[in-house]
Simulated assay, not measured.
Amino acid sequence: MPFDAQISAAAADRIEPNPRPIAVWLLAVAGMVWVMVAIGGATRLTGSGLSIMEWAPLSGTLPPLSEAEWRRLYDLYRSIPQYALVNAGFGIEGFKEIFWLEWIHRFWGRLIGLAYAVPLAWFWLRGRIPAGLKPRLVLLLLLGGLQGAVGWFMVASGFEADRTAVSPYRLVMHLGLALVLFAALLWTGLSVLRPVPAPAVPGQRTVRRQAQAAAWLIVAAMLAGGFVAGTKAGFDYNTFPLMAGRLVPEGYWRLDPAWTNLTVNIAAVQFNHRLLATLATLAALGAAFAGWRRLPAGPARRACLGLGFAVCLQYALGVATLVHVVPVWLGTLHQACAVLVLAAALAALHALRYSTCGKSSPRESRRGA
C-alpha cells in the first residue's frame, strides 16, 4: 500500500484527530536539516571541518573549558596534513576560529537529534501517531543516526597522508544522505497534513510528469555539485557560459579510467554540474509554464510557479558564485538555496498528486493508465 494511503487508512483510528502537531514537528525538523546543510557548506568553504579530530557524540557536546584542553586539541590538529600543507604556523587563536564553526556544525546535528527523538517519544507514548506512520518515523530516526556516523566517516578521510580536505566521494555520500533525510521529513510532513490527494484535473498528469523530470534533474545537479565542492572545482574556469573560451573544456576525458573524469577531473566535474543545472532549470521552467497553462488557480499551480522561481534563483546564485570565485558567503547561500530548490520540487510533486477516483478527460485517463 502506498505510504500516503497508509496515513489515510490509519487516520480514522488515531486517538488524536488533529494531525497538525505531528506535521509541524516534522516540517520543523526538516527546516533544521536545511540549516544544517547551510552550516556544512560554510564549514567546508572555510576549511573548518578537520579542526576537530575526535568523534565524541556525548563528551563532545561541550566545547573546551580550559586552556589545557584547547592546547590538546590544537596539538592534535597540528598533526594532520592540512595544518602542515595549508595552515603551517597557524596560531591557537586561528585554530579557535575554525574550531568554533565545526563545533557549531556538530552541535546543531545533536540538536536535530533531540528535536526529533524527544517529540517522537512523546507522541508515541501518548498514542498520537497513526500505526501506518510509525515504521516511517523509526526509519527516519535511524537515518539521522546514520548521518552522524557518515559525517565522521567523511571527516576521517581528511586525516589521511597528503590530504588537506575530505574525500569527495565521502562528501557526496554525506550530502546525499542529508538530502534524503530532508526530503523524507518534508514529504512525510506534507503527507500528514494532506493525506488524501484531490481528484485529477485535465492536464494534471502531464504537468506531474514534467515536474518529475525536473526533480530528477535537480537531484542529479545537486550531486554533481557535491563533486564540484569536493574537488574545489569552483575555483577554476571562473567565466560563464564558456570555460576557458570553450563550450566543452579541453581535457574533459583526460583521466584513465574514463569514469574518474566524472568525479575528480575538475574540467569535467564543473562542466557536468553546469550542464545538469541548465537542463534542470529548463525542465523546471517547462513544468512551471505547463502548470500555469494547464492547471486551475490553486496550490498545485502555485507550487509549479514556485519551483520555476526557486530554480531560476539558484541558477543565478550559481553563476554569481562561480564568477566571483566562490566567496564563503555566496557559496554558502548557493548551497542553502539548493535545498530550497529540492523543497520546491517536492512541494510541487506533492501538490500534483491525484486520486484515481477523480474525473479527467479521456486522453488524460489513457495517459495515466
Rank of each mutant, 00 (worst) to 15 (best):
L217R: 09
M173F: 07
L45V: 15
A11T: 06
N238E: 03
P296G: 05
S79W: 01
G318P: 03
G60D: 00
T332G: 08
L247M: 09
P257L: 06
E93W: 06
P19F: 02
L282N: 00
S59N: 12
E250F: 04
E102R: 07
L179M: 14
D4Q: 04
S167F: 09
I22W: 05
A344S: 02
R254Y: 00
C357F: 00
V248L: 13
S66K: 11
L185P: 02
W34R: 08
R274I: 03
G245R: 00
G127E: 03
L255M: 13
L342Y: 02
L146A: 13
L101G: 11
L279R: 09
G189L: 15
L295I: 04
P2E: 10
T61L: 15
V311T: 15
P17R: 09
L340V: 13
A267P: 02
A221S: 15
S355D: 15
N87W: 11
M1V: 11
R302I: 01
A290P: 15
L76M: 06
G132Y: 02
A283M: 01
M53F: 02
Y237I: 00
A184C: 10
V33F: 14
R294M: 11
A115M: 00
T321M: 11
V339N: 05
A229F: 00
P195Y: 14
E364Y: 03
S365C: 00
W122F: 00
A23C: 07
L175A: 08
V150G: 01
T263E: 00
A287E: 06
A149F: 13
G40Q: 03
L247E: 07
L140I: 15
L295D: 00
M1T: 15
S355R: 15
I218H: 11
A38Y: 01
N261L: 05
F3E: 05
P197A: 10
R302V: 01
V37M: 13
L352Y: 04
G132K: 05
N87E: 15
A224P: 10
V341A: 14
W100P: 01
V228M: 09
L317K: 12
R274N: 05
A224V: 14
K232V: 12
S8I: 02
L27P: 05
G47H: 02
L193P: 15
S51C: 04
